[in-house]
Amino acid sequence: MSIDAFIMGLTFIMIHMFANELIPANRIHRLKWFSFSGGLAVSYVFVYVLPTLHKEQLMTKEHHDFFTMESELYFIGLFGVIIFYGIQKVVRKAHVDNQENHIGMLFWFQISFFGFYNMLVAYTVVSQEVLGVQAVFYGLAVGLHFIAVAHDLWIEYGEAYNRVGRYILALGIIAGWATGLTLNLSSLTESIIFAFISGAMILNVLKYELPPDHESHFSTFTIGVLSYTMITLSLKYFFQW
C-alpha cells in the first residue's frame, strides 16, 4: 500500500468517527459548509467520475470482445443508481411513516450497505494506486462525500450511529484496504466495481448532498464548483491524469 492510499484511508476512517463534530453548529456556517462541499462533489462527478467511467468503458471494450456496445459499464452505473435509490427510498419512507418497529432493522440494513459501499471505494483507491497530487484532490472530494453521508446517518439514527454505525463504516474502509492489498481482481471486475460505485455516488451527490433551495447558499456553491473544477482541470492538463 502506498503512503498516499494509507493517508487517504486513515482520513476516511477519522471522518466516519467524527463526522458529527466536523459540521459547524451555527446555521449560516452550516449552510455554507454543505453548499461548498456540494459544489465540490458536483464538480468531482463531472470532471473526474464521468470521464474516468468513459475511459474505463473504452479500455474494457478494447480488451474484451463480448463488450459490443459503448455503454455496458454505464448500465452497471445505472444499476448502482437503482440500488442506492431503492435503499434510500425505503429508509426515508419508513422514517416519514414513523414505523418505529422497523427502524432498528432499517438501521442495520442501511449501515451494512454503506459499509459495503465504503469497502468498494477503499478497494478502488488501493487497486488503482491513486498517488500524489491526484490523491489529494480525489481524497478531498470523496472525504467531503463521506462527511455528508455520515452526517445524514447520524441525523437519522443519532446514538445508534455513534454507538455502532460509525465503527461499521470504518471497518468497511479497513476491509477495502485489506481486499485491495491481498486480492488481485481482473481489470474487468475492477471496472465493474468502479462503475457501480460511480452510479451510487452520482445519485447521492445530485439528490442527497445538494442542499434544498431554502437551505442553500448559491454563491458558496458556485465557488466550490469553480474552484475544484479549475484546479482539477489545470492539474489534468499539466500532469496528464
Rank of each mutant, 00 (worst) to 15 (best):
Q88D: 13
I15G: 05
F239K: 11
V142W: 04
I202D: 03
H145R: 04
Y117Q: 03
L210R: 11
S2E: 12
L140M: 02
L140E: 01
S216I: 14
V81G: 09
E56R: 11
L73M: 09
D65G: 14
E70G: 09
L233P: 01
L22G: 08
I192L: 09
F6S: 13
E190A: 11
S186M: 04
V45F: 02
L235R: 01
G104C: 07
I192D: 09
L31R: 15
E70N: 10
T232I: 10
R166Y: 05
L169D: 05
K32L: 08
F6G: 10
E209M: 09
K55G: 15
K32R: 14
G199K: 10
M14G: 12
Q99L: 14
A141Q: 04
G9A: 08
M1A: 08
V133P: 06
L210Q: 06
I82G: 08
I83H: 05
V45L: 10
M119A: 15
L210I: 15
V125F: 15
F137H: 10
I3Y: 13
H145Y: 02
Q88F: 07
I174A: 10
L210T: 13
L50P: 04
K93Q: 13
T232W: 00
V142N: 02
F67C: 10
I15A: 01
Q57E: 14
G143L: 01
M105G: 11
G165V: 00
V81T: 07
T220V: 13
N98R: 13
K93E: 15
K32A: 14
L185N: 06
W241T: 02
Y123A: 08
T182V: 12
D4I: 00
I111P: 06
F114V: 05
E62H: 13
P51F: 05
G180W: 03
A175D: 07
R30T: 00
L53H: 06
M105I: 05
I231C: 00
I15N: 03
S234C: 07
I192V: 13
F6A: 12
H63D: 08
L78T: 12
T52C: 09
L206W: 11
N184L: 09
R92V: 12
F238C: 03
L206R: 07
V225C: 04
V142Y: 02
I197Y: 01
S227M: 11
G143T: 00
Y85M: 14
L169K: 01
F146Y: 05
V130S: 06
S187I: 10
V47Y: 01
W108H: 12
S43N: 04
F84C: 12
S234L: 14
V45N: 03
Y208T: 07
E62Y: 13
F75C: 10
E72L: 01
V49Q: 01
F36W: 04
